[in-house]
C-alpha cells in the first residue's frame, strides 16, 4: 500500500516538474527586470495602437488655426502644431501606424529571410552561393540608402516604405538563419533523424526550423525597433507617410521648422519613437538572455 502511495506521489512530482524549453525560457525571462519593463512599454504602446483612436480627445485632422503652436496645456496635453492640430491625439493615432509598419515589415522580412536562409543553409552548394551573394549585395549598401532607392523606384507612400524596410531587413534574417542551420544540420539528432528514415522536408520543418527559431525571435524583436526608426526616417525624408497621416517621423519633419518657438511639436513625437524603440530593445535583450542557452548560467 505504502509502495503504491509513494509511486503516486512520485508521479505527481514528475507531472509538476515537466517543463518544456519554452516554459523554461519564460521563467528566466520573468527574472529580468529590464525585460519586464521593456515588455510593459511594448504592451502599453500596443494598447495605444489598438485603442488610441478611441481615446484621442480630438481628431487627427481637426485644424484650429487660431490655436497654432500652442504650448502644452490642460486642453492640448502635448501642445498643438503649426496647423493647430492636437499633438497628443496625433501621437495616439501614430502609434498604430508605426507599430503596424514595424511589425508587418519585420514579419515579412523574417518569413522571407528564414525561408531563403534555411534553403541556403540546408541544401548548400550552388543554391547557397546564389542566395548568399544576393544577401551580400543587399548588405553592401547602407540600409537606409537602399530603402530610399527602393522607395524612389516604387514611389513614396507608407506602403512602399513598408516594403522597402522589409526588403532591407531580409538579408539580416537570412544570414542569421543560414548560419544557425549550418550548425544545426551537423548536430547528431539531425543525423539521427536521417538514419531513422525521415525525408528532407520533414527534417527541415520539424527539426531544423524549430531549433533555429530562437535567434529569429530575438532578432525580430530588435528589428521591430529598427524598422520603426527606419519608417520614421523615411517619413522624415518625405518618402513614407503622406501629408495628413500622423506618422511620427513625418510629424518630426513638419515640426522642425518651428524647433525654437515650439519645441513640443518635436519633442513629443521624438519621445514616442524613443520609448517604443527602447521598449522593443529591452524586450529583445531579455528574450535573448532567456532563449540563448549559451547565455544561461
Amino acid at each position: 500500500m505504502s509502495e503504491i502511495i509513494r509511486n503516486q506521489v512520485r508521479q505527481i512530482e514528475v507531472e509538476e516538474k515537466v517543463k518544456g524549453p519554452w516554459q523554461e525560457a519564460w521563467t528566466s525571462f520573468k527574472k529580468s527586470k529590464s525585460a519586464l519593463v521593456g515588455s510593459a512599454i511594448v504592451i502599453f504602446f500596443v494598447l495605444i495602437a489598438v485603442f488610441g483612436p478611441f481615446i484621442a480627445p480630438q481628431g487627427i485632422n481637426e485644424q484650429n488655426l487660431s490655436m497654432r503652436l500652442q504650448p502644452p496645456s490642460a486642453e492640448f496635453w502635448f501642445g498643438t502644431d503649426d496647423l493647430g492640430r492636437d499633438i497628443f491625439s496625433r501621437i495616439l493615432h501614430g502609434a498604430r501606424i508605426s507599430l503596424t509598419v514595424g511589425l508587418t515589415a519585420v514579419l515579412i522580412s523574417a518569413v522571407a529571410g528564414s525561408f531563403l536562409g534555411i534553403i541556403a543553409g540546408y541544401y548548400g552548394r550552388w543554391i547557397d552561393t546564389i542566395i548568399s551573394r544576393i544577401f551580400d549585395i543587399l548588405l553592401a549598401f547602407p540600409s537606409i540608402l537602399l530603402a530610399i532607392a527602393i522607395v524612389s523606384i516604387l514611389g513614396p507612400s507608407l506602403q512602399n516604405a513598408l516594403i522597402a524596410i522589409a526588403v532591407i531587413n531580409i538579408p539580416n534574417f537570412g544570414r542569421l538563419i543560414r548560419s544557425r542551420v549550418l550548425s544545426i544540420k551537423e548536430e547528431e539528432y539531425i543525423h539521427a533523424a536521417k538514419a531513422i528514415g525521415m525525408r528532407n522536408t520533414r527534417i527541415l520543418w520539424k527539426h531544423i526550423l524549430p531549433n533555429s527559431m530562437t535567434p529569429v525571435i530575438v532578432q525580430g524583436t530588435l528589428a521591430i525597433a529598427t524598422a520603426i526608426i527606419e519608417a520614421a526616417a523615411l517619413g522624415f525624408l518625405g518618402l513614407g507617410a503622406e501629408a495628413p497621416q500622423p506618422e511620427w517621423g513625418k510629424m518630426l519633419a513638419d515640426a522642425r521648422m518651428f524647433l525654437l518657438n515650439a519645441p513640443w511639436a518635436l519633442i513629443f513625437p521624438g519621445l514616442a519613437i524613443m520609448l517604443t524603440v527602447i521598449g522593443f530593445n529591452l524586450m529583445g535583450d531579455g528574450l535573448r538572455d532567456a532563449l540563448d542557452p549559451k547565455m544561461k548560467n
Partner: peptide, 10 residues
Amino acid sequence: QDPYASLNPR
C-alpha cells in the same frame, strides 16, 4: 555516441 546531442532538445 553522444546521448546529449542525439536527441532533439525541443
